[in-house]
Design a protein around this nucleic acid. Structure first.
Length: 486
DNA sequence: CGATTTTGACCTGCGC
DNA sequence: GCGCAGGTCAAAATCG
């Protein structure tokens, strides 16, 4: 065998079984850690290493003449290997970052594509509608309105500039997200950056991430207002979770601050309003209310998107709401038509577990966790165990907890034009819309993460629902206040 | 004393 | 235009 091969073998001996040689350089915990990691990533690695060591032992016992110089070379070689290992680790980290970035860019492009497709659909619908009803309407106004929905996915907070540029619709630069630079150049972050730069109607700076419910209206055209309204709908899509709990609040991992309480019509229990306080300006809010018919059921309704990293516990809920809202709004559905049908959508895995409500005022998806889990063990809903605390939904990190920003399908195609539906899932009115089981199955197929996330969330919630959130010792109980008390 | 909750007032959208 | 209901604000009260 060539000397180089011997050196490699001895070096690996040292690397793998550092105490075999009296001259080995500290293998240390790092090497142990490395070997464990390598065995984890490449099963059989340790066996291969052991084979190499045995080979090396044989070589050493048969040839020890140049051992001194060999030991010197081993030290050098070991240093080289370690340097190489560090370089590989660094490269690995870089590759991971790159992968994340590619993921981010992929989702940004995907959303952009969907928004463009929707624009096209809107354009067709608008032109046919215009032909029938408003022949004398100015072409400029029409053109202005058509592109707003798609544009606002990208240019939220830049409406004035958008108005000026709207005519030049063919300019792709203004709508394509900047994918060229630093990680996270996504539509989401683009929107968030622009929010930071945006101002209130009074000219005051907006808190980062804050999406005011009272969006300033564009008074340029009716279409603009409609687009604004649509965008507001998208931003206000809700995910409602029903769970039996004696606790005043389900622990969802986030910190909340109560900012209001009202008596809701038809329910003796007050509705409490909470705002996420994990980051300044986080727009996420939630409502807590007990079901009127069964006050052991606590209904938690989430609205908005976190603008900050979430702890694993919070990511559970956030990802669930993200996936659920995604199923509602973009639906993971191939077509805007025929997805949500007037009757009967439930998750095929568990009757009444998930209800999609696309009714006014805001689209809501309800996760009903009040059914007896013994009838259908949660872990049978999906063969894959919840992958927490890792990327539980399979969504890029920036999407976690951002159920709304990622919705590309304008709600105009999903929203019912009629009626008001109570936010409380138990009281969903006639205008509640369901998705056909087949359609939902298609949705699940298209978005398999949804089921996984849902199961994980349910597991989490069931575990948490019976213990009070010590950090959220808010009471929604005895005092019924507000100017709407009747 | 700062953070949080309470609670009456106010704002907005919607239906009539 | 008016009233109702949902949602939010913000000062006062309370808590730790």
């Amino acid at each position: 065998m060539e000397p180089l091969d011997r050196k490699r073998v001895v070096n690996e001996m040292d690397f793998f079984a550092g105490d075999l040689s009296s001259t080995h350089v500290n293998a240390g915990d790092d090497d142990d850690h490395h070997r464990v990691k390598m065995e984890t990533e490449y099963p059989g690695f340790l066996q291969d290493q052991a084979d190499d060591v045995n080979t090396g032992i044989n070589l050493l016992t048969t040839n020890t003449a140049s051992e001194k110089s060999l030991q010197k070379q081993r030290v050098i070689q070991l240093a080289d290997v370690r340097a190489e290992l560090e370089r590989t680790n660094a490269e690995n980290q870089w590759l991971k970052l790159t992968l994340n970035q590619v993921n981010n860019n992929y989702y940004a492009l995907k959303m952009h594509l969907v928004s463009l497709m929707q624009r096209q659909r809107n354009r067709v619908a608008e032109s046919s509608k215009a032909n029938n009803t408003e022949m004398n309407r100015s072409m400029e106004d029409k053109t202005h309105g058509e592109g707003m929905v798609a544009r606002q996915f990208v240019d939220l907070g830049e409406s004035e500039k958008a108005e000026k540029d709207e005519i030049s619709e063919s300019s792709s630069e203004e709508r394509l997200p900047d994918l060229s630079g630093s990680p996270g150049n996504t539509i989401v972050e683009s929107m968030e950056r622009r929010e930071k730069n945006s101002t209130t109607p009074e000219g005051l700076p907006q808190p980062p991430g804050w999406l005011p419910n009272k969006a300033p209206k564009l008074n340029t055209s009716k279409d603009n207002e409609q687009a604004q309204h649509t965008m507001a709908m998208i931003q206000k899509a809700r995910v409602s979770v029903r769970a039996r709990s004696e606790a005043s609040m389900i622990a969802d991992g986030c910190q909340w601050r109560k900012y209001g309480q009202k008596m809701a019509k038809g329910n003796p229990c007050p509705r409490a309003y909470y705002r996420c306080t994990m980051a300044t300006g986080c727009p996420v809010r939630k409502q807590l209310q007990r079901c009127a018919k069964d006050q052991t059921i606590l209904v938690t309704t989430y609205e908005g998107n976190h603008n900050h990293p979430l702890p694993p516990a919070a990511m559970a809920m956030a990802s669930t709401t993200a996936a659920a809202a995604s199923a509602l709004l973009s639906g993971s559905l191939p077509s805007a038509d025929g997805v949500i049908v007037p009757k009967g959508m439930m998750l095929p895995c568990s009757p009444s577990l998930v209800t999609l409500s696309a009714s006014a005022p805001f689209p809501t998806v309800t996760l009903d966790l009040t059914h007896n889990p013994k009838q259908r063990p949660l872990n049978q809903l999906h063969p894959i165990s919840p992958p927490w605390p890792h990327n539980i939904s399979g969504l890029p990190p920036h999407l976690l907890g951002h159920p709304i920003y990622n919705q590309s399908k304008p709600l105009g195609t999903l929203l019912s034009s009629q009626g008001n539906t109570e936010l409380i899932p138990g009281h969903l009115g006639q205008s509640q819309m369901h998705v056909h089981p087949v359609a939902m199955a298609a949705a699940i197929t298209a978005d398999p993460n949804f089921t996984t996330v849902l199961v994980a969330a349910i597991t989490s919630i069931i575990g948490d629902s019976h213990r009070d959130n010590s950090g959220n010792n808010n009471s929604t109980t005895s005092r019924n206040t507000g100017d709407n008390n009747t």
